[in-house]
Design a protein around this nucleic acid. Structure first.
Length: 829
RNA sequence: GCGAAAGUGGCGGAAUUGGCAGACGCGCUGGAUUUAGGAUCCAGUGGCUUAUAGCCGUGGGGGUUCGAGUCCCCCCUUUCGCACCA
């Protein structure tokens, strides 16, 4: 009795728990997801942005990144590619450490727990992860090679230490790179307002690659928006560097301008308040005022300082420069609208033709000289309400008078070059990458500071510099916790063997993640960072999928590292990610999910209730993958129904003994089947999972209609094809359905994912009769059934015969006709 | 302020060399089946009206065209990125 009941139950409801665990077990036992990296024919490297174990759980955003990506990669496998799909943990860094600090437990322990939990959840997804190539950036086996990477860059002169005003997070108690500061001047991780500190820090010379980073973008299949963001971040700007000699000083001061044509309009110079030269040039009379001003500026927060709509302030330093052409004396001012970080930190002020200078000059009654005249209008210095910033004709400009200002840029620059007072130059917004962190949970910087020999790299055979594990005082306190550990800090200098100290800082975790795609290929190797042969055969990554929030940070850093390693002749490519896509954001009830709004969707609940296949398929069905979608607890039942309907169809017909030898598919089914294959194939390439699933639903609906009177010859092969089409979207279900069709003879270790992706038959998509739309004056009046190859006259004849059309044209003259074959006939009267 | 993307039923969303607006799904309505249904199957479902038909309809306003969700111009709203970059 019990058995009968179970069977009844099973025949209606898809038993997801059993089926999913069954196939997970079989895949694991058969090594289905182990990629043979020595077989390089038709390779496909599918990568997702690995997870960052800050707390216990994978959230829905991870699922949304990983599961649809896996569907895409599974499809690539069915297309005959040898797919490599690795997974790992970006386990160092602030979130992991902040979580540990909050728990009062060493991050070594909390991270291990988090990784174990995440690993379990990753298994639930049922993705094709090659667990033999799992990496954890916080393991010595990995960070040994992050240190090697640092030393490689150091050898190339791309890693250097300098004293500089840097972003400081008072909460995380560490410095941050420019990329890790939000638009509001807050810490990218914790949201705390940042301050500036003047510290000696390690930098990577990413600015050296600014042009290469721009150029490389052109070769990439990346979202337009992401490319634009990187371009803007690099911020290339062509202009002229001009030398002004300072009265009473030997060395001239350089300024950068994009408007050399306005050189004759310069009426004063402005220094950034942090500029080191200010102390030297300020006169005794002005010193008190300048010092007071600088102190006020220092007190202002970054956000106050950079607000564009506030009134500009500044003071006169008492010093003067000499104009390179006119030899006029020009005042030097200090003002906080000039930024030390851009150009030379000094600006030549042209109030007539720059709005910022204009506002400043008006406020402090500084002179204004017009040197560009617009067409058909005469500017009057006393009447101007704003600066004239666009092009025009040069005036009051000595020999350049009458020249169009666009030409003037080059002409002036050339004259400066001739007189040795300037040259054309390029400036970037991009700053060097600050990689030091005053934190415990990161890769130690492999440098030893020796009082005699200076900065000495740790010899490669002494790597890794191990991060001490049993540390009680790991909480951040303004300098690296490692600095307080004598057993770590005190070493012998590798050169002179004298007493020396280690570098106490750890590296930005973005260093770890900037090269992980290399490590995945040979994580077992203890003697090299990566296997060159495998790198050559498998990289670059064919498809990379991850969040748009990394558009600038991780993606820019990884590109930089690839270019540096390429220049070191260590890798053959200089762009690591050939094709990139970002998944969108899943909202719930129209809002971003957050603990504070209480609208967080917990994946585990839905995976338990509906199974991971249904969960992943619903995420794919919700909306366009790259745009995201809105989660609905009700919406998921649509996919649940689809899966159950599919299941019942196979339950009812998988064992039908109707012969397949002379298939009798209806024209409609034959069309729908082939149309489905065609569209799903196209949609998958574009990652348009939502419409692909719609097409499969249509096919299922058609199959229900066609099987109401029982099975028909050919049904089994339709079900075989359908199982293969469904498989990438719902891997466990697809595998089960396909095996139901193959029968007992097919071993469980033979996977549907090693079967060919079905081809469609183009002939089946050609219809003999079509519905032609008949319009009168552009308005739809009727639809008529006509042969597909009908001509205009025949179509008109048929249209005239239509009861709905006839009244409109009776007794009226047809003025014009538009006939679009296979689509419509528009009669204009 | 600058740059990018978007705006379509009650809801999520389809539809682009300009050619049937609303595919597919949720929800809702009706029917069938059932002891029962939060199961299943079938049908319907943009709005309005004088309803076997007609009119209106893709943020708003203009335009091009036989024909516009789609192209052009102006405006509004939302999201994202950047923001004194000299």
């Amino acid at each position: 009795m019990l058995i009968v009941l179970t069977e009844v139950f099973m025949s209606t409801e898809y038993p997801h728990t059993e089926i999913e665990s069954k196939w997970k077990r079989i895949w694991k036992e058969s090594g289905a997801h182990h990629t043979d990296l020595s077989s390089t024919d038709r390779k496909f490297y599918g990568l997702v942005m690995f997870s960052y174990p800050s707390a216990h759980k994978l959230h829905i955003g991870h699922w949304y990144n990983f599961a649809p990506a896996d569907s895409y990669f599974r499809w690539k496998r069915m297309q005959g590619y040898n797919v490599f799909e690795p997974m790992g943990y970006d386990a160092f860094g602030l979130p992991a450490e902040n979580y540990a600090v909050a728990q009062g437990v060493n991050p070594t322990i909390t991270t291990a727990q988090s990784v174990a939990g995440i690993r379990e959840q990753l298994e639930q997804i049922g993705a094709m992860y090659d667990w033999d190539r799992e990496v954890n950036t916080s393991s010595p086996q990995y960070y040994k090679w992050t240190q090697w990477l640092f030393l490689t860059l150091h050898k190339m002169g791309l890693a250097y230490q300098k004293q500089a005003p840097v972003n400081w997070c008072p909460s995380c108690q560490t410095v941050l790179a420019n990329e890790q500061v939000t638009a509001e001047g807050q810490c990218e991780r914790c949201g705390t307002m940042l301050t500036k500190r003047d510290l000696k820090q390690w930098f990577f010379r990413i600015t050296k690659y600014a042009d290469k980073l721009l150029e490389g973008l052109k070769r990439l299949d990346w979202p337009r928006k992401t490319k634009i963001m990187q371009e803007n971040w690099i911020g290339r700007s062509e202009g002229t560097t001009i030398s002004f000699s300072i009265e009473g000083q030997d060395d001239p001061i350089d300024v950068f301008t994009t408007r050399a044509d306005t050189l004759y309009g310069v009426t004063y110079l402005v220094f950034a308040p942090e500029h080191p030269l200010i102390q030297e040039i300020t006169t005794e009379e002005q010193r008190a005022e300048v010092d007071a001003y600088i102190e006020t500026v220092n007190k202002a927060t970054e956000i106050e300082r950079t607000a564009t709509d506030r009134v500009k302030t500044g003071v006169f330093t008492g010093a003067y420069v000499i104009h390179p052409f006119t030899n006029e004396r020009l005042q030097i001012w200090v003002a906080d609208y000039v930024l030390l970080g851009y150009g030379t930190g000094v600006v030549m002020a042209v109030p007539a033709h720059d709005q910022r200078d204009f506002e400043f000059a008006r406020k402090y009654e500084l002179p204004l000289q017009i040197v560009i005249q617009p067409e058909g209008e005469i500017l009057d210095p006393n009447m101007m309400a704003e600066a004239y910033e666009t092009a025009g004709t040069m005036v009051n400009s000595g020999e350049f008078g009458g020249m169009p200002s666009e030409e003037g840029k080059n002409a002036v620059t050339q004259r400066l070059e001739e007189s040795g007072k300037g040259c054309s130059s390029v400036n970037y917004r991009l700053r060097d990458w600050l990689i030091s962190r005053q934190r415990y949970w990161g890769t130690p910087i492999p440098i030893i500071h020796c009082p005699k020999c200076g900065k000495v790299p740790v010899p490669e055979d002494q790597l890794p510099v191990l991060l001490p594990e049993n540390v009680k005082e790991f909480a951040p306190k303004g300098k690296s916790p490692l600095a307080a550990l004598p057993q770590f800090m005190e070493v012998k200098c590798p050169h002179c063997e004298g007493a020396a100290k280690r570098d106490p800082d750890t590296m930005d975790t973005f260093v770890c993640s900037s090269w992980y795609f290399l490590r995945y290929l040979s994580p077992e190797r203890d003697d090299i960072a990566f296997d060159s042969d495998r790198v050559k055969a498998w990289l670059p990554v064919d498809q990379y999928i991850g969040g748009a929030e990394h558009s600038v940070m991780h993606l820019l850093y990884a590109r930089f590292i690839a270019k540096a390693l390429h220049d070191a002749n260590l890798i053959h490519f200089d762009e690591p990610f050939t094709r990139l896509r970002h998944q969108g954001i899943i909202t719930h009830k129209g809002e971003k999910m957050s603990k504070s709004s209480g609208n967080v969707v917990n994946p585990d609940n839905f995976v338990n209730e509906y199974g991971s296949d249904v969960f992943r398929m619903y995420m794919m069905f919700m909306g366009d993958y790259e745009q995201g979608g809105d989660w609905s607890d009700e919406g998921i039942v649509g996919i649940h129904r689809f899966v159950n309907r599919l299941w019942r169809l196979y339950q009812d017909h998988a064992i039908d003994s109707v012969s397949d030898e002379s298939p009798e598919l209806s024209e409609k089914l034959n069309y729908t089947l082939n149309y489905t294959i065609q569209q799903v194939t196209k949609n998958l390439e574009d990652l348009q999972f939502n419409t692909a699933i719609s097409r499969m639903m249509e096919l299922l609906n058609t199959l229900y209609e066609e099987t109401t009177d029982g099975p028909f010859p050919g049904l089994t092969s339709v079900l075989d094809v359908f199982a293969r089409v469904v498989a990438p979207f719902a891997p466990h279900l697809g595998e089960e359905l396909w095996h139901m069709i193959q029968g007992e003879a097919c071993p469980e270790t033979t996977s549907v994912f090693d079967q060919p992706w079905p081809d469609f038959n183009p002939e089946a998509l050609v219809k003999e009769t079509i519905t032609l739309v008949v319009q009168i004056n552009g308005k739809l009046r009727d639809r008529i059934e006509v042969p597909a190859d009908v001509d205009q006259d025949a179509a008109l004849a048929k249209a005239k015969a239509s009861e709905k059309v006839a009244p409109y044209i009776e007794g009226r003259e047809i003025r014009k006709m538009v006939f679009v074959p296979k689509r419509l006939l528009n009669i204009v009267i």
